[in-house]
Amino acid sequence: MEGMFYSTQEVWTWWIAIYLFLGGLGGAAVVISIMTNMYYRTHKELILWANISSFIMLSVGSLLLFLHLLHHIAVINVLNPMVLINKPDAWISWGTQFIVWMMVWSMVYTFPYLLESPFWSRMPIVGSILKLFGWAGQLSLKFHKIIGWLAIINAVGTVLYTGLLLQSFPAVALWHNPGVPLLFIVSAFSTAFAFLLLVLYLFIDREEDHVIKVFYERTDVILISVELLIIFVFFHFTTYGLESARHTASLLWENMGWIIGFIGFGLLVPFFIELKGVTTGWKSPAPIVLAAVLVLVGGYLLRHYFMYAGVYERPYPAQHEFAPGGHVELDKLQTQKPVSG
């Protein structure tokens, strides 16, 4: 219809970007660490670091979402697993269940290693509590592979959910397309490899992990290059696509935070650092550590700018532009020549 207005939203902002970032990173870290442990190299310490970190990340992300709810008690409606039968069309229903069960199964999988770990078993109070549940560790080991796969399936679901959540909003061209879940999956796994490289270099630091580090670095280089290709596709889509996508283009591609911050320092710089690492190698681990930090920052920036650059097209201005104190000046309203019919 004639006289359209274009606006972004102020409903889901930086805190949702953090939630999506931590959800993707935590989910992918569980997948990679358990797969590594089951099928590549047995690595109890990696499992401990990855799965406990993931548990903390998902807790922080979920807490942020919970704090921003309007009606906190009603959250029980979505924590109930029956929600999948009552509301199978809502991705938040699936996402909540994926997150909860991923946290449960990944911790059950980690539990036997927790019991063996001197750090945790000697910790005051925690250690004595752990001793009470020694039987649970034995039980977990008995079904370790099945439990591992249950954690992996829910973790993959969590990663997928972070992209599908945005895709389910039809009014925003930037979000409502199959490229978003794909981009978020690739980004999640890239950030998770970066995070695990940080863990391997800075905290575990064992000589025999060299082969795992090389594998992670190689995979991360491939993932970053795929991410760059997807970003190029989004450049084309927003620049030559629907009208609301074109307004997104002006928000993204004229923004130095997106271009220099995300694409430059979040993708290109770590790509070249890691590429040199897997081809000619580095004498010190410092460049890889730097690259991993940059990938993590880039992973957040991607989601941050995605949340802020989603443009709605409507025949009237957005509500928040009429909020108290939000006086709208006519020259700021974007109008265009009407299109008949």
């Binding site: 939203q9 409903v11 889901w12 979402l65 921003h68 709810l69 309007l70 009606h71 906190h72 009603a74 959250v75 409606n77 979505v78 809502a90 938040i92 959540l165 389910s168 909003f169 039809p170 009014a171 709605y312 097209e313 409507r314 009237y316 957005a318 509500q319």
Partner: peptide
């Protein structure tokens, strides 16, 4: 309603 505001994000009509 738990007030997650996904509906507000999804509504094309604000």
């Amino acid at each position: 309603c738990m007030g997650c505001r996904a509906c507000a994000m999804a509504c094309p009509y604000d």
